[in-house]
Simulated scan of single mutants.
Amino acid sequence: MKDVLLILGASGQIGNELTQSLRKIYGNERVIASDIREGNADMMNSGPFELINATDKNQILQIVQKYKVTQVYLLAAMLSATAEQHPQKAWNLNINSLLAVLDLAKEKHIKQIYWPSSIAVFGPTTPKQNTPQKSVMEPSTVYGISKLAGEFWCNYYHDKYGVDVRSLRYPGIISWKSKPGGGTTDYAVDIYFSALEESKYTCFLSENTRLPMMYMDDAVNATIQLMQTASHKIKERTAYNLSAISFTPKEIALEIKKHIPEFEILYKPDFRQKIADSWPQSISDSKAREDWNWQHQFDLSSMTKDILTNLKEQRSTLKL
């Protein structure tokens, strides 16, 4: 039987690009996009779309049965900075959506689940450099607490019920195709748009705040590769550390200036600085590389060149 995939939270930053990549692999009709709001034109026109509340188990089950879904990618979540402003709402979305999908797998309605975790599971007491797969995890944000709890729910359902659930601890994800969605690492997305539109950017983190980051192309490839790996090779059922590059706002600004010499950056740290300071500066993802041969493709230089090239093309197209 051919797999049919349901993406919950397909209109988000990662969901949007992951959906399109999965449709190229599995075919448009076998990848069902869904969200609590409609997606962009490309998503809506390229394949099936359903309006779904990701915390409503019965609503999800109806769609699973309608399309004979075998895999669920649960991407619906409230991110770090937004979650700090709406803690109970964030907990409800981030945890209840996961439990709904885990129960559907436990009841044999679906075969496989993907659920993203985050470097937010780490906290101020975690080793900052080359943070290992297993380390001190004392998150200081609602988002981090929900992701840490979610990791152990995944592990529990795998151990107790044999649920095939897989997860990655994403670093900051950078994309040129969609605007930021309320995360602490979002400056690294915003900065490229501002550089082209205004030749300046005011950063909400201080200049030397180093954080683990990843280009969207690498994040999507890692997700698909993890889900296509044979089950017996998946050794971590909480979540795998995932890494590519680490840099500071100052370093990304210098890279942008190579392409836009007049670019200027200012620094006005806000409440997100405290969140960023609680996270690691670099991540060791040796387990992912060992267990399923993960390898990233983009560094800061190649990512910056690719983003600015695509954004310039996009702008010139819109002007035609």
Rank of each mutant, 00 (worst) to 15 (best):
I256Q: 03
P87K: 00
W115M: 01
Q20S: 15
E290L: 11
A244T: 14
E84S: 04
Y192F: 15
T125A: 15
Q112M: 13
T238V: 12
A10P: 14
P124F: 07
K128A: 06
T238W: 00
K66P: 02
K108T: 03
L196R: 00
S11E: 10
M214S: 14
H259W: 06
D218H: 05
M44L: 14
L205P: 10
L300H: 01
P261K: 04
T70A: 02
L320P: 11
S199L: 13
L311M: 13
K134N: 14
Q59E: 15
I234H: 01
I32P: 01
E17L: 12
M214V: 14
E313I: 15
E38H: 14
I32W: 00
M78Y: 00
Q295F: 10
F152N: 15
S246P: 01
Y240C: 04
K312G: 07
C154H: 09
K106C: 00
T229H: 04
V4G: 00
I174D: 07
T202Y: 00
H259T: 03
T131M: 10
V69T: 09
I60W: 06
Q88E: 13
W292Q: 09
T248P: 08
I95W: 03
P116R: 04
M137E: 12
R237Q: 02
E151A: 02
L196H: 02
S11C: 15
I145Q: 15
L104S: 02
T309Q: 14
E107D: 07
I191V: 13
Y240Q: 01
S194E: 11
T309F: 12
T184E: 09
I32S: 04
T82L: 15
G123Q: 09
Q88R: 15
T19D: 05
I174F: 11
D217M: 14
N96W: 02
I110L: 01
W115T: 09
L148G: 12
Y114Q: 00
S46R: 13
W279M: 08
A230Q: 11
I275L: 07
N94V: 02
Y267R: 07
Q13G: 14
M137P: 01
D56R: 12
T82Q: 12
W294T: 07
G182W: 12
Q59W: 10
A100Y: 03
F152A: 08
S140D: 15
K57E: 13
D42C: 08
G162L: 01
M44F: 08
I63N: 11
K57A: 10
L254C: 10
T238F: 05
I275H: 10
L266T: 15
D218M: 08
S243R: 03
A120G: 06
A276H: 05
V220N: 05
M43Y: 11
I7K: 01
T304A: 05
L79H: 13
S243Q: 10
V101E: 03
E290Y: 13
T223G: 02
L8E: 03
R315K: 15
L74V: 04
F247P: 03
A33I: 06
D159Y: 04
A230M: 08
I191P: 03
